[in-house]
Amino acid sequence: MSTSPHAAAEEHRGLHAVALFEAAKGALALLAATGMEWLGPAPLQRALDALLALLHLDPAHGSPAWLAHALNPDAVHLAAAVALLYGAVRLAEAWGLWRAKAWASWLGLSAALYLPFDLYAFALHRHWLEAAAVVINLVVVWVLARDLFKRRH
C-alpha cells in the first residue's frame, strides 16, 4: 500500500523541519559564495577572525587554521564555486524533503558521513559548538533513516 507524498509528510513531520534546516544551510552557502566573489579575501579574513574570536576558537589549529590559510586571492573563486554547488545541492534536497521525496532522504543521509568527524572534534575540544553539531547531525540522520524505514515497511 503506497501513501501519497503529502500523507508521508503528515505522517512524519520531521521531514519539514529537516527541509527548513537544509534550506537554511543552502541559502547560507549561496550567500557565502556571493560574498566571496563580491568582497574578495580581505573582508572575509577580517570576518573570519572576528567570528573565531566570538566563538573562542583557536585560529592556529584545526579547520579554522585551514580556512584562514585558504582565504587568499587564488582560492576565492574555487571556494565560491564549491559553496555555490553545495548550496544548490542543499536547496534541491530541501525541496525534495518538503515534498517527501525518497531520493531527498537518501541524499540527506550524507549527514551521517560527518558524524565520525563531529564526534572526533567533540572528543578533542569538548566545546558547545562540536556538541551542537553532533546532536543536530544525529537528529537529521535519525529523521531521514526513519522516513526511509517507514517507506520500506
Rank of each mutant, 00 (worst) to 15 (best):
F21T: 12
G14L: 06
K150N: 10
A133C: 09
L44W: 08
L39I: 05
A111C: 06
A8K: 10
D49V: 07
A47S: 14
S105M: 11
P116S: 00
L91N: 09
H56T: 08
S105H: 09
L113W: 09
A92I: 01
L52M: 03
A102T: 03
R151H: 01
H77Y: 08
L148R: 08
A29T: 05
L51M: 10
A70W: 07
A75N: 15
A88P: 11
A68K: 08
R151W: 01
A92T: 02
L71T: 10
L30F: 15
L48N: 04
L54E: 03
P59R: 03
Y114I: 01
A123L: 14
A33G: 14
A17E: 08
W103N: 09
A65S: 06
S105I: 01
A100L: 04
L84E: 10
A88I: 03
E37L: 15
L71V: 11
H125W: 08
A132S: 14
H6K: 14
S105N: 07
S2D: 13
R151T: 00
S63D: 06
R146I: 00
M1W: 11
A60C: 06
F122Q: 12
A68Q: 07
L51C: 10
L57Q: 03
L31M: 12
V135D: 13
H153Y: 02
A24S: 15
D58C: 05
V143I: 15
H69P: 00
A19G: 06
A132I: 06
H6R: 14
M36H: 06
M1F: 13
S110Q: 01
I136M: 12
A17R: 12
R90V: 01
E37Y: 10
F21G: 12
A92H: 05
A123I: 04
L30Q: 10
A92P: 03
G62W: 08
R99W: 06
L107C: 13
V139S: 08
G87V: 01
A75E: 11
L78S: 09
A50T: 07
W98H: 09
L138C: 15
R151F: 00
E93I: 02
L148K: 02
K101T: 00
F21E: 13
A32Y: 04
R152W: 02
W95C: 05
Q45W: 00
P73R: 14
A132M: 13
K101R: 15
K150R: 13
V139H: 05
L44G: 06
G87Q: 02
A111D: 07
W38H: 14
S105Y: 04
I136Q: 10
L48G: 00
R90N: 08
M1V: 11
V76M: 15
A8W: 05
P64L: 02
L54Y: 07
H16A: 15
A27T: 09
H16I: 10
A123N: 14
H56A: 14
